[in-house]
């Protein structure tokens, strides 16, 4: 949640942020909201004033642009994080999100550089040290991420959501698809962003599943699923909103896990699997609700059980099942 949690909250949920872009995890040890030491406050004007003119550009210059790797149906396994120019975030940043303190810009720059080392070094402190060095920042900065590797995974999740939103805005074709196809397409776009990291993704999942990280993992996935439903043209006021979120969550995570062991070219089998699950869900919903008058809740439970069974059938480890249960059942 380091890159743009505050901004995302503003954009996505239209929730009012407290205007204090402190990172929640570190807050316990921070003097809470005290304007005296907060680098974001006006009192330390020297730090505050440098940040807006200089840093946005610097950080954007370092931002990975991995939308290419995403749109090219992951035909190459090379990390999309090598590219140096990323105009994507400019517009979002200027839409009135609260300015981040300089240290947060630096944290984002380091995490962004660290992602380029993940395919080799994994979601590890080593990748973060390498990233800090590359960004020209002392690796001591890693001490400012209380949950270390989790910060890296969460940053990645945030970046991916941001890119997904950009794709939703820019890709007009999506609107011509029927809802089930649109959902399939969006899940695929999002999962393709993980393709360059696929060999290290089980490690990311296990980090996300650790008790101290699960709350954030859950929130990030919920936001992702909400965003996809929203983009699919579904207004969230429905009574069965919870059920929809859970159903899509189950589809998303099952496909995510399926992808881990998929050796077919460009994850062809994964996308077939995904299409099947989405179609199923839409059909089932219809059948159950119209013909049997079953509550959406029941449909979801049914789907979850079914997918877990399928995941087991596909030979996935029990730890991953455990992960899915925990993340998607709260």
């Amino acid at each position: 949640m380091y890159r743009s949690a505050a901004k995302r909250l503003l954009l996505l949920q239209s929730r009012v942020c407290n205007g204090h872009p402190q990172i929640s995890g570190v807050r316990t040890l921070t003097i809470p909201n005290s304007p005296r030491f907060s680098s974001t406050s006006a009192s330390s004007s020297q730090t505050f004033s440098d940040q807006s003119p200089n840093f946005p550009h610097q950080s954007h210059a370092q931002n990975p642009n991995f939308s290419d790797s995403a749109s090219s149906a992951s035909s190459s396994q090379s990390s999309g994080f090598e590219s140096e120019d990323a105009p994507h975030h400019e517009s979002r940043t200027s839409k009135g999100s609260p300015p981040r303190a300089q240290y947060q810009e630096e944290q984002a720059r380091v995490l962004s550089a660290s992602l380029r080392h993940v395919p080799n070094l994994g979601w590890t402190e080593a990748a973060m040290i390498a990233g800090a060095r590359e960004a020209g920042v002392s690796p001591s900065i890693i001490g400012s991420f209380p949950r270390k590797e989790a910060a890296l995974v969460e940053f990645f999740m945030d970046e991916c959501l941001q890119l997904l939103m950009d794709r939703i805005d820019s890709e007009k074709d999506l609107r011509n698809l029927i809802p089930s196809e649109r959902i399939s397409k969006l899940v695929r776009i999002r999962l393709e962003m993980q393709a360059p990291f696929i060999s290290k993704w089980p490690q990311a999942l296990s980090i996300q599943a650790q008790p101290q990280n699960i709350t954030t993992s859950f929130k990030q996935r919920a936001m992702l699923v909400d965003e996809i439903w929203h983009a699919a043209g579904d207004e969230a006021s429905d009574v069965d909103w919870y059920a929809k979120r859970a159903a899509l969550g189950a589809i998303y995570s099952t496909t995510e896990v399926y992808m881990l062991t998929d050796k077919s070219p460009d994850f062809h089998d994964t996308w077939t699997f995904l299409d099947g699950r989405v179609r199923d869900a839409f059909d089932l919903k219809k059948t159950f609700q119209e013909d049997f008058h079953v509550t959406p809740q029941r449909v979801v439970e049914f789907l979850q059980a079914k997918y877990l069974a399928e995941a087991v059938g596909a030979g996935m480890g029990s730890s991953l099942q455990g992960f899915m249960r925990r993340v998607f059942q709260g």
């Binding site: 040890l29 005296r36 030491f37 240290y103």
Partner: peptide, 17 residues
């Protein structure tokens, strides 16, 4: 608190204790 503010005044960021 006072010492933390002195540290911030010296130019440090994200000062905590």
């Amino acid at each position: 608190d006072k010492f933390a503010s002195m540290i911030a005044d010296a130019g440090f960021q994200k000062v905590e204790y």
